[in-house]
Nucleic acid binder design. Sequence first.
DNA 1: AGAGTATCGTTCGGATCCAAACGTTTGCCA
DNA 2: TGGCAAACGTTTGGATCCGAACGATACTCT
Lengths: 172, 172
Amino acid sequence: MSGGFSSSDDEDLIQAELDVRARVGDLGIDYESLGAVSNIFRVANRARAHLERSALAPHDLSFTAFTVLWVLWIWGEREARHLAAEAGISKGTLTGVMTTLERGGLATRRTHPVDRRLVLMQITDDGERTMEKVFPLVNSEETRLTSGMSSKEKQALASSLRSMLRALENLE
Amino acid sequence: MSGGFSSSDDEDLIQAELDVRARVGDLGIDYESLGAVSNIFRVANRARAHLERSALAPHDLSFTAFTVLWVLWIWGEREARHLAAEAGISKGTLTGVMTTLERGGLATRRTHPVDRRLVLMQITDDGERTMEKVFPLVNSEETRLTSGMSSKEKQALASSLRSMLRALENLE
DNA sequence: AGAGTATCGTTCGGATCCAAACGTTTGCCA
DNA sequence: TGGCAAACGTTTGGATCCGAACGATACTCT
């Protein structure tokens, strides 16, 4: 298969851009932004798959379940709506993920003692032990993913990502 | 809710890192890589949701359907396995997405004339017209997402992302 | 106190995700 | 030629996604 945007190879990427220009050259396209944003999706998609395969699946955790557990582990008990927002998922999805985590004994939920609308989510002892095992594995994979970058480059990357998060916040 | 990694605010992010250190300080964590990778997931997740809401949903397209159509639009007819790989999804998922696209009249599939195992996927005229309308909308949102960055910063971002794609390829 | 509004988490319907199993087709080798 | 292995896309079962609807709770105002 001829190259495409999915390649990390510079020549392939240049060819991919030529392909795109050939197709949509007259539509006034911002190729720089296209490349940047689409590659963020690509990296995220692949990195996620890799983390799931290498660190999470052996512990029966999906990426999302891991993210939810992470928030509970670091910041403790949380209302469902806040947990969902922090994990970047809808409340409906959190319901499903929490059901899975509860079934695996890694997290529990209880009704708020004063406001009966609210549900409080909490990590279990088993959940904590799992995070103590899994998180270092995840982090070492994160280190491998950034191994080709200098510290200065990582900082520049972090700055660009923050810029984009700010742009996303200003759109809402 | 107290800050968290989901914030673009520098002070919040520093506080989040302190929270993490307080929790896992003795596990030898690479905080730089943690921040970089987790923020890529965050940006990707939010940007995806934003694109779906602002440009794709009005045309009844999910992000994945858009990605599949994009590949067919730029590079033309493709075997299913290659299309799935380029779109970053499994063959099983592609089957479902193609069913949706076929139902909407935006793409079709046919059996390969020589190798009957293969299925060839193709965009329709309607699909092309939809892409001509939708893609400039998507691209202008991409421009907005990168509006806080200089051209030099975008290039540095692209370089970092390629480095990570290379790292991901070397893991497989 | 009661009605109306707002908020919560869950449910629902439909779509996207995966890996594994499956039925069909192709290629290889004795 | 026939048997076996490999490859393909679809199906399957289970999970994650969404937004909207829903039932329960809390708040506000008359």
